[in-house]
Simulated scan of single mutants.
Amino acid sequence: MKMHQFVIIGLGRFGSSIGKELIQLGYEVLGIDRNEETVQELSKVLTHAVVADATEEEALRSLGARNFDCGVVAIGDDIQASILATILLKELGVKKVVAKAVNELHGRVLERIGVDRVIYPERDMGIRVAHQLVSPNLLDYIELSKKYTIAELAVPGCLTGKSLADVNPRGKYGCSIVAINKPKGIIIAPNAEDVLTERDVMVVIGTNESIEQFQESIGS
């Protein structure tokens, strides 16, 4: 089901960043925060921004929170407020609820109360940066599960001019190049004859071990 309207509770750095990006993507966003100054600043950017206490059921009801496709609880260090706001969104019948967790215990509580997706922005960014520091060709990656990952790898000079058949990551390492992002556009499901250049970015899917082996081979 395609989402059209989002309500974001907590307009700190994390919540405001999500809201601004959703607006850029063409979606409607209602932002809720207790801080009047923050709300005033974001009222010029978001579809609507209001000062309200999202831990009060009547406040969320009066704002029509139940009519939104997705609720994002982006409250920072106030874990109690985060949990209460999340419970209220679920009880009001919001179709999908996503919540930020500040630690593993907070995340487990959110999962127990039925959150559709728990996000750990600080932890996940730390993991990403660590991987990028030790793997020069790694631009970004998404952990699909504990075993499988999608990674964006910059094409190094040693692969420039080689076709996917020459590189053969599937045969040699067990991972697959599912897309190539070239300066002129992206190639989805590239074929064996497609040639890599140094400015390309490979989108690779496979087990953590297979991608790590592939990274090591092109980084040496």
Rank of each mutant, 00 (worst) to 15 (best):
A85I: 01
L89E: 13
V155H: 05
R61E: 15
I23L: 07
C158N: 07
E216W: 03
I119V: 15
L153E: 02
L88Y: 05
L153R: 06
A74D: 13
E122Y: 01
V29K: 11
G26H: 10
K182D: 08
I32Y: 12
V129R: 00
L159T: 06
S163N: 10
K162P: 07
G126T: 01
G93P: 08
E58R: 14
L92P: 12
K90F: 09
D53K: 15
D200L: 09
A101T: 09
A59L: 07
I32F: 05
R170K: 14
I150R: 03
V7L: 14
G157H: 01
S176H: 14
E36N: 06
T38K: 11
E216H: 10
H106I: 06
T160E: 15
V115I: 12
V7Y: 06
T197W: 09
I23G: 05
R117W: 12
K100W: 11
V203T: 15
V134H: 01
N137H: 06
Q24Y: 06
E37N: 12
Y148D: 02
P183H: 13
S145G: 00
D116W: 12
V72N: 12
F14D: 08
I75H: 10
T38P: 04
E122C: 06
K147L: 01
M125T: 07
K100M: 13
V167K: 05
I205W: 05
N168L: 00
D77R: 12
I205Y: 14
L159I: 03
L138A: 00
I9H: 11
L60T: 11
H48D: 10
T86C: 05
T38F: 02
V195Y: 15
A54M: 08
I150V: 14
N181T: 15
L88W: 08
C175P: 11
K90L: 10
E91C: 07
E21D: 13
L133P: 00
V7G: 03
V29G: 03
G15I: 04
L25N: 11
V201A: 15
E21V: 04
V72R: 11
G15K: 04
V45M: 14
E209S: 14
K20L: 07
V115F: 13
F68I: 06
G126I: 02
D78H: 09
E37M: 03
